[in-house]
Every structure is written in structure tokens, then in C-alpha cells.
């Protein structure tokens, strides 16, 4: 195993997560604002996540060819659900009283979204990003099959040449990566909730 493999795995996940946020959060906002597209958006992201990862990657590969972009797009589509769903839920669950008072004070819809609703929904959106990240670390293993590199290729090679040590070391690094991401992000998440949640007093 090389550091290179770890880094490329990490790169795949990071790129996918960044894209997921860039695309998923606006989709969640759209679903919140427009009732007409809400069902469609939420349904599509759910269907995407239900698709077998390798099947999804295979289909993308037909259009994009083998390589990292295929993997990143696959991971992105696969990760949309938690981010879109949590953005939508986070925004719609902002206390109606707060929405009303913001409106009554003369905030425009966008100002309200940006200065009130998004900050309040932020912890829940972050939870969505955490789930997407941890899932992506595992799913990125499939990259090996469509020429995307990463730790999957190590494990895959280990299986082909019957090298137990290779499989286990790859798996171990993968688990550390997943648990590490989860741990760090859970910690940040807890601090966010403490800070923003009106229910829990914030003391420092």
C-alpha cells in the first residue's frame, strides 16, 4: 500500500463531498421553496441512493468512460440524499414563529433564508454532510472497478492474488478513515448543536 492510494481515495471522497454540498444544498433549498418540485427532487435523490453503486458507476461510465470523474460523479449522486433531505427538513422545521417574525420585520425571502433559516438549519445540514462523507469513504471502494484508483484497488488486487495481508491492511486503513471522518465531524456537529439549538442552553 502506498500513501498515494490513501490520498487518491481521500481525494475522490473530498471532491465528491464538496460537489454534493454545492449541488445538494441548493436542491434542498429549491425543494423547500417550491412545492411543485419538492416531491420530484426528494424522489430522485432517494432513487439514486437505492441504485446499486456498481450499476450506477457502470451507467455513468458508459457516458464518461473510465476514470476519476466517473467515480466522483457516482459518489456525488449517491451522497445527495442525506444532504438534500437534511437541508429540506432543516429549513422546513425552523420554528414558524421565527419565520413569521422575520417576515413581519420586513425581511425579504432571500435575506431571511440567508440570515435566519440557513444558520438555524446548519447543524442538521452538517449532519447530512457527515453521513454523506462516511458513506462515500466506503462506496469509493468501487472506484477500483471503473479505473478510479483508491483503496478499492488494493483490496481488489489482494483478492486476486490471494494476499490476506493486503486485503486486511486496505480494509484497516479504510475503517480508520471512515471512523476518523465520523469522529471529527461528530465532534464539530455536537458543538454546532450546542451553539445554535435554542432548546439546549449554550454555555462557554
Amino acid at each position: 500500500m502506498t500513501l498515494n492510494m490513501v490520498m487518491s481515495h481521500f481525494y475522490l471522497v473530498a471532491a465528491a463531498v464538496v460537489l454534493t454540498i454545492v449541488i445538494g444544498v441548493p436542491l434542498g433549498i429549491l425543494a423547500y421553496f417550491y412545492k411543485s418540485v419538492r416531491k420530484i427532487i426528494l424522489w430522485i435523490v432517494e432513487v439514486l441512493q437505492t441504485m446499486p453503486a456498481l450499476a450506477l458507476l457502470g451507467i455513468i461510465m458508459v457516458f464518461m468512460g473510465a476514470g476519476k470523474p466517473t467515480v466522483i460523479i457516482g459518489l456525488l449522486l449517491y451522497s445527495l440524499l442525506p444532504v438534500v433531505q437534511n437541508t429540506y427538513i432543516g429549513l422546513s422545521e425552523v420554528d414558524p414563529a421565527i419565520k413569521e417574525v422575520a417576515q413581519g420585520m420586513g425581511m425579504t425571502k432571500l435575506y431571511r433564508l440567508w440570515h435566519v433559516e440557513m444558520p438555524i438549519a446548519f447543524p442538521l445540514i452538517f449532519t447530512g454532510v457527515r453521513i454523506a462523507t462516511v458513506t462515500s469513504v466506503g462506496t469509493a471502494v468501487f472506484a477500483a472497478f471503473v479505473g478510479g484508483g483508491g483503496l478499492g484497488s488494493l483490496i481488489y488486487r489482494g483478492i486476486r492474488i490471494s494476499n490476506m495481508a493486503m486485503i486486511l491492511s486496505g480494509t484497516f486503513v479504510l475503517m480508520v478513515m471512515a471512523v476518523g471522518c465520523d469522529g471529527i465531524m461528530s465532534y464539530i456537529e455536537k458543538r454546532l448543536y450546542r451553539r445554535f439549538s435554542p432548546a439546549k442552553p449554550y454555555n462557554e
Partner: peptide, 12 residues
């Protein structure tokens, strides 16, 4: 000015 029962201070 507008004041409501639920207070509605912005928690953030």
C-alpha cells in the same frame, strides 16, 4: 414594529 407571543428571537 412587530412582537409575537412565541417571542421569536433568532436563536443564532
Amino acid at each position: 414594529g412587530y412582537v409575537i407571543q412565541q417571542i421569536g428571537l433568532f436563536p443564532n
